[in-house]
Nucleic acid binder design. Sequence first.
DNA 1: CTCTAAATGAGACGTAGTCTCTGGTCAAGG
DNA 2: CCTTGACCAGAGACTACGTCTCATTTAGAG
Lengths: 163, 163
Amino acid sequence: MSDIDLIIERLELRGHRITSSRRRVLDAVLAQQAHFTVDDLLHTTRKVGRATVFRTMKILLDLNIVCRVMMDDGALHYRLSTGRHHHHLVCTNCGRVEDFSNCDVNSLVRDLQSATQYEIEAHWLEVYGRCQSCQLLASVPESKSAATSKRATSARGGRRGNN
Amino acid sequence: MSDIDLIIERLELRGHRITSSRRRVLDAVLAQQAHFTVDDLLHTTRKVGRATVFRTMKILLDLNIVCRVMMDDGALHYRLSTGRHHHHLVCTNCGRVEDFSNCDVNSLVRDLQSATQYEIEAHWLEVYGRCQSCQLLASVPESKSAATSKRATSARGGRRGNN
DNA sequence: CTCTAAATGAGACGTAGTCTCTGGTCAAGG
DNA sequence: CCTTGACCAGAGACTACGTCTCATTTAGAG
Ligand SMILES: [Mn+2]
Ligand SMILES: [Mn+2]
Ligand SMILES: [Zn+2]
Ligand SMILES: [Zn+2]
């Protein structure tokens, strides 16, 4: 049973209908090898409405089939998910993304919980740095290579790392 | 020397001019007791252009005078910052925000660094939960109280806690 | 096959933020 | 005093990302 069939099964279980549009979006998602935006999907899936792609992505997000990565310029990209809880290590130069699961906030959560009396439900952690190949290319600004380095466009937000 | 004078001094040091618009934005920012949006500022500072408010906020962000909080609905709000590295604990019910600094990712960073060979530069961590008063009000959906619980508007994004 | 609830897609709308352009303020220098 | 030039303000167009509305289509249960 292929990936797509498994996902379709899960969609059906949730009572979602398997429409041709959804199938096309799903195909496009599974064809992505790195992270992507809804716009990327729209370019590859002709004939699917924008709203439908957004709606489908929301479902896939609920099912943990995709996750979202906050790029260092503030843009939110989608990415196929392992389904398990994890976080992202994002290269601020080329946009390459590494997952990691050895998330050790549990002790932090315990401390916070007793210090603030909050009932902690979730957390969001993204780490930023330079991947090995981008370090080697030192200051040479690798114009447009590696991973999914589309979007030279200036972009909004920006500035990761909080204070 | 008041807060505002200290900030103005820092702006001047960076070569920014102290204009009446900037002063008005600054006043509005300092008058906020919780987190706020640019739109909130626009409502309180009459006669300052939208672009100018955004431009001023960007400067304040660079100077670590304000920071941004990712609300659990995905909205980015501004908040007066301590200036030091810290993170946010956000109540998913009323929007109250607590800062915390006992951020113990350093060991995680070390592990990641050696495991992935990334040169880690920054991280972003937000924690979500229910504050004490919202726990007491159990399932009673406190319609519109506490902290800065404006914005009943549906909102984008949503879904904190990653996977 | 029939029927209906669910889904689609076009496009309007909302919000956050940037950009462009024109005009203003102000300080330095002649 | 006048010019110059850097910085800045504000209006409004524009972009990105996402939601909503509504008329139409379709999946899939019976
Ligand atoms: Mn974690
Ligand atoms: Mn930290
Ligand atoms: Zn890289
Ligand atoms: Zn609360």
